[in-house]
Design a protein around this nucleic acid. Structure first.
Length: 388
DNA sequence: GGTCACCTAAACACGC
DNA sequence: GGCGTGTTTAGGTGAC
């Protein structure tokens, strides 16, 4: 399999999301092979690969883009513009994890226990990149920006993620620290704010520990069930708000999809009448591409991770070969569908496309924002499903 | 301009 | 007494 790699020039600033520092991963490189096109996307910190209960862990969360909105985009795909004049850049063997389901909160366990946190790139690092340094490293990355979530949302996520749906204050601290590196460098006042929110907000309830429980101080905190929908709504609005502030205003179909689209829980949706193509975002699971495992299209969705960590190791050659085989097996491949696969390697996410698929920058940007929509959809899945 | 939500800081009490 | 935790008050900011 022949493979060419290309490094794209910095994205125009206009393509970056100005108001959402946790969004708009700069598009930095592209690797094209005979069967796949790898689009390197820096990890989106806002996107939440974890799969807490408010992100339905079982429901596929593929993003479905409506035909009318993406048709022009797909119609405007222009390979020469996309690839011409790019500097060559070789990506180190992207590998994938064997069983990593990025839609599952397990990644948090991995991150918290196994992987060091890395600073999050802000919105605008790419234009500052030098040509000789096509892939930004954390050395060049600015410190992570403040998450858009309120403390109530952070606490809610922390508690809801916990296995027992209850956490001590210290556990909430740790979850926030592990999930949002911003707070690692932030002054300690945020802890006070967490405690303040716990005490003041009716959404959280204190559970006294057993007296014979000698480990730890203080009480456990849980989410009041009656306030859970409200918390979910706040969370959804936060995500929605930042999505709409991320160049999505002029992409109503994406907004619809990100908002409440029932299609979010489906696997595929046709998006282009002219090209008869469907964008399918699915999880990375290259090693799982065996006869014993489901095809890519049926894998759980891939949520981008909130901060930019190396969650998985990937074996590039095997992956590409298997992807190629799987693409042929995939019924979607014969039905005019285009299947996209996210996986991640170091601080990048890779979008794997069929070999004859070409994307322009605008489409790539949409796919980036798609991850936000996916996340927003996750919350809505729970709402739609009535919670758990 | 008023209201609301949210953030931040500070003070204090309590228990380990 | 130190520290972490929990509560309360107050002021500021921004969105609606």
């Amino acid at each position: 399999m022949e493979s060419d790699t290309h490094t794209l020039p910095p994205l125009p600033t206009s393509l970056l999301c100005p108001t959402t520092l946790y969004q708009s991963p700069p598009f930095s490189s592209l690797l094209r092979t005979s069967s796949t096109v790898h689009v390197s996307l820096p990890l989106s910190p806002l996107s939440i690969s974890p799969c807490p209960t408010w992100l339905s862990p079982t429901a596929p969360a593929s993003i479905h883009l409506k035909t009318e909105s993406l048709s022009p985009l797909l119609d405007s795909l222009s390979p020469p513009q996309f690839l011409d004049g790019q500097n060559l850049h070789c990506l180190n063997s992207p590998t994938t994890s064997d069983q990593d389901d990025l839609t599952c909160l397990n990644w948090l366990h991995q991150r918290g226990n196994l992987l060091p946190l890395q600073p999050l790139p802000k919105t605008t690092p790419l234009p500052q990149l030098e040509p000789q340094d096509p892939i930004p490293t954390q050395h060049h990355l600015p410190s992570p920006s403040k998450p858009p979530y309120s403390f109530s949302s952070l606490i809610f996520m922390a508690i809801d993620y916990s296995p027992d749906k209850r956490l001590p204050v210290k556990g909430i601290y740790e979850w926030i620290l592990n999930s949002f590196p911003y707070y690692r460098a932030a002054p300690g006042g945020w802890r006070n704010s967490v405690r303040h929110n716990l005490s003041l907000s009716k959404s959280f309830r204190r559970i006294h520990r057993d007296k014979n429980q000698s480990v730890g101080k203080g009480s456990l905190w849980c989410v009041c069930p009656e306030y859970r929908p409200a918390l979910l709504e706040v969370l959804r609005k936060t995500q929605y708000y930042h999505s709409t502030n991320s160049n999505l205003l002029n992409k109503p179909a994406l907004l619809e999809g990100a908002d409440y689209g029932v299609s979010m829980v489906c696997d595929t949706v046709a998006i282009s009448d002219s090209l008869s193509q469907t964008l399918l975002l699915s999880s990375p699971s290259p090693p799982a591409l065996t006869s014993d495992n489901p095809p890519l299209s049926s894998n759980p969705p891939c949520h981008l991770t909130p901060d930019h960590e190396e969650l998985v190791n990937m074996e590039a050659v095997e992956y590409e070969e298997e992807v190629g085989e799987e693409m042929e097996k995939d019924p979607l491949s014969d039905s005019g569908y285009i299947e996209f696969h996210y996986y991640q390697y170091h601080q990048y996410q890779y979008l794997v496309l069929p070999g004859d698929t070409e994307l322009d920058l605008e489409t790539v940007e949409i796919l980036q924002l798609d991850a936000e929509a996916q996340e927003a959809a996750g919350s809505l899945l729970d709402l739609a499903g009535g919670g758990h």
